[in-house]
Design a protein around this nucleic acid. Structure first.
Lengths: 164, 164
DNA sequence: AAAAACCCTGTAGCCACTCCGGGGTCAAGA
DNA sequence: TCTTGACCCCGGAGTGGCTACAGGGTTTTT
């Protein structure tokens, strides 16, 4: 099968398939007389495996290692366990921070409803205040600037960007 | 203040500060006689704002837009609302898929405990089976390969990568 | 026969940094 | 005075995982 057919079967863009070949993830197939790549079922399976791992958000380096382990069935399986463990920990960490983030954003969103000028926008006010280190949940180790004001400078020329 | 002091105050790498200047996010400060950048409090505030937005995982393009709105306090605040809404939806979507992902990985992790050869590893078996489209939760629209076998080819030379 | 769809290679772009090389500047210590 | 080390400058390249060209050739369909 040609690259387009393989792409359709696995729902992978041919550009991506060539990319996988370039970085050594998918073995280079034989070529036909016209230079076209000719794939067999083994490529199809390997590519499907890669995409499944990617659907699990594994970095390609990890996929590479798993493929290597698949190719060497006598190796110790502990490597697989460790890899999955590490990846899982990574995902769980990301999940937690994303949950906190969503909460933050929802809170922020609640600050503004109506239509008015940005000068009165609760969201912008909150963002500026939080950046200036006042009582921000997500920003525990906060930055203390020299100003107590609630507005960023820059809007009026005389309060601009002069050195200290 | 010089770039190092600004970096310490905001916990931002000087390289990142220069990068923000290069892409037009932070105004270029005046220079001292020796060419060093000289920052004022306005830069400090603006940079803190940027970092707070980044801590909320906003793309720099969004931060740019918020800064623009801050600089134009009479603009309509609906733009801010829309921006936050869009970002929140994005984060919530990512959160959901990450939750599904963590569940998948936990399930996967449960497949293998002991130490044995990778040929018998439940995780690898599951990954290969799932890639081949058999009863995988995360992979609804699955790929059907031509083979029923549970192992990827490639380990033995005679079952390798021939074209179809 | 012409048009559309496919294939090839190589290169550049995306995001948000991060690192590197090769240099200049400046203050403190030996 | 010399040296060390910390800081600063700039431009360019690298990261991951693609995606999008540009500029050609081939195959299939109309």
């Amino acid at each position: 099968m040609r690259i387009g057919a393989l792409g359709q079967a696995t729902r992978v863009d041919p550009e991506t398939i060539r990319y996988y070949e370039r970085i050594g993830l998918l073995p280079a197939p034989v070529r036909r007389a016209n230079g076209y790549r000719a794939y067999g079922p083994a490529h199809l399976e390997r590519l499907a495996f890669i995409r499944h791992c990617r659907a699990l958000d594994m970095p390609l380096a990890d996929v590479q290692r798993l493929l290597h382990l698949l190719d060497h069935p006598l190796d110790d399986c502990q490597d697989v366990d460790r890899l999955i463990d590490t990846h899982l920990a990574h995902v769980q960490g990301k999940l937690q921070s994303l949950q906190a983030l969503a909460q933050q954003l929802e809170q922020l969103r609640g600050r503004c409803h109506g239509q008015h000028a940005t000068a009165e926008c609760g969201i912008l006010h909150e963002l500026v205040a939080a950046a200036q280190g006042e009582s921000c949940v997500c920003h525990g180790n906060s930055v203390q600037t020299s100003q107590k004001g609630r507005r960023l400078r820059g809007a009026c020329p005389e309060s601009g960007y002069e050195p200290e």
